[in-house]
Design a binder for these strands. Structure first.
Lengths: 248, 248
DNA sequence: TACGGACCTTGATTTGGGTCAAAGGACGCC
DNA sequence: GGCGTCCTTTGACCCAAATCAAGGTCCGTA
C-alpha cells in the first residue's frame, strides 16, 4: 500500500534540485559524501500519510519534490495545519523519537531521508549542518509567527488573500522572479486543506474565493488555476503591514 | 526615560539564575568566560518597550528575570502577541539587524545582552552555543505551532483555559513541581494582553474568566490571583488532546 | 477626602463565519 | 454511456464573539 522507498532512484547529491537550499546547503564535498552514504529516498503518493502524530519516527528528511502538510488535531476532530512543507524543507526533529505532527503528502512526494541517530551524530560533529538547520528553523519560526497573526486577527477575506499571496510568492521564487503585475499559478491545496490552514471552514473558503472573483481581485480557470490581474491589489486585500507578508 | 543599562549590576555567570536553561546552558567554563566578558545587563520597567518592530537592533539577549512579550501588528492597529518571553528565553535573531517584532516589558525586566556581531562570531565558533540555540528555537517552534492550533480552532472558553493551564504549568516548573490537584498562581498579564495573545477582545476575555469562575473551574482573589480547585478539570476545559498542551 | 486614570466587568446589539442542507461539476471505472 | 466518488458551490439559518456603551474597582496623588 505504502510506497516507502524508491531504491531504484539514486540521485547524485551534486545534481540534487535542493542541493543549495536544504539542510545540506553549506556542506563541503567531504561532508556531502558522508550524507550521501547515509541517505535513502522515500516516495509517497498524493494523499498518503507519511507519519501520524505520536508515532515512532526513526528518520529525518528533506522534501525533494512535492508538497506535504503538518497538521495537529484536537481530540474531537478539529484540525489545524501548522506547516506547509515545500521542496528543501526539513521534516522531523533531531533528539525526538516521536512525530509531534501528522505529516501528509498533498501531492506526490519525494523525500531524501536519513536515519535519525546517524544524522544526530553528524549534527553534533558538523557545524555547517547545525548552522544551516538553525537558520532554517529560525525561518520556520518567523513563518509560524506570521501565521499566528493571520489566524488571530485577520478576517476570512484577508486570510484567503494572504494565502494566495504566499502561494504566488513561492511560485515566483521557484522561477527566480518576484511577483508583480499580472500573474498566475495553480493552487496546490483542496478547499478543505486551505480551510485547515486558515482556521476556517471549507464553505467559508469557497465563499470568499467566489467573492474575490466577483470583485475582480482574482480570475479562475477551473477550480485550481488562479490569475491575479494586479498583485498589489491582492496584497492590499491581505491587509499586511506594507512591505509584504510571509518570510517563507 | 529608558533604563537601558544596569552598570552597577555585575552578576557572576556561575550564580546566574538562568545559567542552566539559557543559551549558555551547555557552555564549558572557558566558553562561559568568553560570554561573561561580552555580556552587559539591560533593565526595563514594566510597560516599557524594549524595541519596536522594524527598528535597528544591534544586540541579542537572554531574559534573566521578568516577563516580556513579542507582538506583531496589522497597519490598522489590530495586534497579535506571537510570543511570551520568560526567564532564560532568547531575544533577537543572529544574522538579522532589524527587530521583526515589538518587544515589550510586561513586568520589570532584566536581560543579559550581547552585541550582535561578537555573539554571531561566537555562534560560528562554539558548537555548544549553536546547539543549545537550535534546541531552544525548535522548542519555540513547537510552542508557536501549539498556539496556531489554539488560535485557529479553539473556542474562547478553551483559549482562556489553555492560557491558564500554560501559566500554571510554567509557574509550577519554576518551583520544580508539576501542577496537579488544587493550585494557585498570579496572572502576569492584563486582560488586554491576554486578549492579544489569544486572538480575542478584552471584553470576551473578561466574560469567559467570569464564566469559568461562575462554573467553579477557577476562583479569583482580586483580579490577578487565580486558584484552580482541580487542575485536571481545567485541562479538560482546555480541550487539548489528552496528554497536556504546550511544549514550552 | 476627593479626583483622575488604568484596569476590569457587564449589558445590549450586531455581525462574520459556522452549521446544515442540497445540488452541481469533474473524473475514473465498469 | 451510466454511475459513484470526490471536490466544490450556494443558500438558509444560527450562534459565538465583536462592537458599542455604561459603570465599577482599585490605587496613587493632590
Amino acid at each position: 500500500m505504502t510506497i516507502q522507498s524508491a531504491p531504484d532512484l539514486s540521485l547524485n547529491c551534486g545534481d540534487c534540485p535542493i542541493r543549495h537550499r536544504a539542510v545540506c546547503a553549506r556542506c563541503e564535498s567531504d561532508e556531502l559524501k558522508r550524507l550521501e552514504d547515509m541517505k535513502t529516498y522515500r516516495s509517497y503518493e498524493a494523499g498518503q500519510t507519511v507519519v501520524w502524530a505520536g508515532d515512532e519516527m526513526d528518520f529525518v528528511a528533506s522534501v525533494v519534490s512535492g508538497i506535504a502538510t503538518l497538521t495537529q488535531a484536537l481530540e474531537d476532530g478539529r484540525t489545524q495545519m501548522v506547516g506547509l512543507l515545500l521542496p528543501s524543507d526539513f521534516v522531523g526533529r533531531p533528539g525526538r523519537s516521536r512525530a509531534a505532527y501528522t505529516v501528509t503528502a498533498t501531492s506526490d512526494l519525494l523525500m531524501c531521508s536519513f536515519r535519525r541517530k546517524p544524522f544526530e551524530l553528524m549534527l553534533a560533529e558538523t557545524p555547517s549542518v547545525a548552522q544551516r538547520l538553525l537558520q532554517m528553523t529560525l525561518d520556520e519560526l518567523d513563518a509560524a509567527r506570521e501565521w499566528m497573526l493571520l489566524l488571530g486577527r485577520k478576517s476570512a477575506r484577508e486570510k484567503i488573500a494572504s494565502l494566495l499571496a504566499i502561494i504566488a510568492r513561492r511560485d515566483a521564487t521557484l522561477r527566480l522572479t518576484s511577483p508583480q503585475g499580472r500573474i498566475n499559478f495553480d493552487l496546490p491545496l483542496t478547499r478543505e486543506a486551505m480551510a485547515d490552514y486558515l482556521g476556517l471552514t471549507l464553505e467559508t473558503v469557497s465563499r470568499q474565493i467566489s467573492a474575490l472573483k466577483r470583485d475582480g481581485v482574482i480570475e479562475l480557470e477551473g477550480k485550481r488555476h488562479v490569475t491575479v490581474p494586479d498583485f498589489d491589489e491582492l496584497l492590499a486585500e491581505a491587509g499586511d503591514d506594507s512591505d509584504g507578508g510571509a518570510l517563507i
